[in-house]
Design a protein around this nucleic acid. Structure first.
Lengths: 333, 333
DNA sequence: TTGTACGCGTTATCAT
DNA sequence: ATGATAACGCGTACAA
């Protein structure tokens, strides 16, 4: 590897002081136009790029942020990560990607490592730590966007960004009811999930509004993937053969449920309607295409990163943003 | 944000010099056991973590690496990224994730930004730049793993990691032939893709080995996603109604092709056999499940990162690794 | 318009 | 066994 040129190198080549070059690099005033052009020439010629490490040491701005996700392989987070990276690119920021794999210890280590890297900000998805620990960790970073997690007491350097799960689930139930469906089941996600909790409330609200009885036999929990949805739907249809609608925690569960229905000879959507959540790419790949609560995940990632950038720059931001999911009616309900 | 403690802070608290603390932090000899314990106590008490930025400035090791992918949303690269991150975590390294979105300009900017961040190494997937430009860029980094790209002249600080596309495609064709299929088509990916080129060769070799004629009417190119596969398969079946097997560039194309067959009333696998490439999660979600050339993508990511780590540490590595894809026979062929 | 001195937090080197 | 000092590459504050 060729040694990278430093400010001093190109200052020497130009026969000027180090500061003059620095001014040119940072577009600051106080350099004659000819000198500026000459230096600019040398800069490109010698392939100089400022060393962000050294720059960060003195400015305590590293132009890099951390992104913590449970699993970047999950399409949900993959889309968000993509949005974050795109927006970071707009601002010439770099993104450290870290997976927690749902492991609280690894989550803590991820935070440590990002802190050691002196990131300017942090986008933290689905934080699993306790409320106290959350407070401690948030205090360590200059700016944080919390995705999929709420905050009891607002903090000036923290923004929360949540999907309006409650409303989404309620809309789905109302849609089912409008189709004349009566026995509406809910295949929920992990019980530790905040979203799962909020969606269950929305599901209940939807039923109540329609004067339909709540019946815990219609509710089930499962791992948020296709296998989970498949097994849970199988069990559900066994204990409640009269189910005519299934609201799923997410699209993966919905697809699993759809396949379970088909395996049992139930037609979707004729016999059983199915609605998913998130609208991942799979939703339109699968046949019949999934009716689902669409959330623009890449856009959420972008919003998160832009807000983070604003906070870093000292621009005031809303303390919390709530994203409205929108029902995309396709073929499954 | 609370000010992070520095070496000086805890040195002052311990009433010793800064260097003594540094020695303790770095597990170096030359500190009495009592002092070491006392300092260690203060370190945890005050929550000290070394500032990697400052450390990197003097050691010129940042313990961070760059990962360049076309699109982290693509399950193929998502899996690889996950493997890279997992292995990086094992070594306490951090990963900068950058998307190129197949844009050569953005790819160059990605390289610049990673270079400015002074990464210890780089994992570069599907490099699109010219051979000369490739050489220039490789020279800028201490260590590089090139995924999905070959190198004419080996470099001591660069390792290439490729899937044996040729062999995979040939195995697939042989499998088709073994099933008595005669009109075997190939829906290839983008013409600029190196993999696409190698797979085409393998496809040809497979046909030739089976004494089947090459027929360019059986070959098509398409964008490497489901829509691309769908459209291309539709066109293919229109111009060649007698096709009884389709080898697809990847699983997404295969799924698209499968749906096109179904839309045209062709049964898969009875009328038409389909084989994909990569074995992404979708392959087992879709029905019928996809027969495909399995590649352990997460494992590839891990191998890449571990090799990179070895190179950074000065351990010698193979100049090139070739991964054998394995045919996973499921329901589509 | 241009340059000098200093400090960011850490490690390496050389003293003590 | 411990400490003082110089460097790493850069920006800020001040001087010329």
């Amino acid at each position: 590897m060729k040694n990278r040129p430093t400010l001093a190198d190109i200052a020497e080549a130009a026969g000027v002081s180090l500061m003059t070059v620095s001014r040119v690099i940072n577009n600051k005033a106080g350099v004659s136009e000819d000198l500026r052009q000459e230096i600019l020439g040398l800069v490109t010629e010698m392939g100089y790029h400022p060393n962000q490490i050294a720059r960060g040491l003195v400015t305590s701005q590293t132009t890099s942020v951390g992104l913590i996700v449970p699993d970047n392989t999950n399409p949900f987070f993959a889309q968000i990560a993509r949005g974050v990276e795109d927006a970071a690119y707009e601002h010439a920021y770099s993104v450290f990607l870290v997976n927690t794999v749902e492991d609280p210890i690894r989550e803590l280590e991820a935070l440590d490592s990002l802190w050691q890297k002196d990131v300017d900000g942090l986008i933290w998805c689905s934080a699993r730590v306790s409320a106290e620990e959350l407070g401690v960790q948030l205090r360590r970073f200059p700016a944080v966007v919390l995705l999929n997690r709420e905050l009891e007491v607002p903090l000036s350097h923290v923004m929360t960004l949540n999907v309006h799960d409650y409303r989404g689930a309620r809309v789905a139930v109302t849609h089912f009811v409008g189709q004349g469906r009566q026995r509406i089941a809910f295949l929920n996600g992990p019980s530790h999930s905040l979203s799962a909790h909020r969606r269950l409330q929305g599901y209940h609200a939807g039923l109540t509004t329609a004067n339909l009885p709540l019946d815990s036999i219609l509710e089930g929990c499962c791992p948020p993937d296709t296998e989970g949805g498949y097994e849970a739907a199988l069990a559900l249809l066994k204990r409640c053969p009269d189910v005519d609608a299934i609201l799923a925690f997410n699209d993966l569960v919905a697809v699993g449920a759809m396949q379970a229905c088909q395996a049992l000879g139930r037609n979707v959507p004729k016999d059983i309607g199915i609605i998913g959540f998130d609208d991942i790419p799979l939703a339109t790949i699968i046949k019949p295409q999934l009716t689902t609560l669409h959330v623009n995940l890449m856009h959420i990632g972008k919003i998160a990163m832009r807000a983070l950038f604003d906070m870093v720059e000292g621009v005031t931001c809303p303390a919390a943003i709530l994203i409205e999911p929108e029902l995309f009616v396709r073929d499954s309900a």
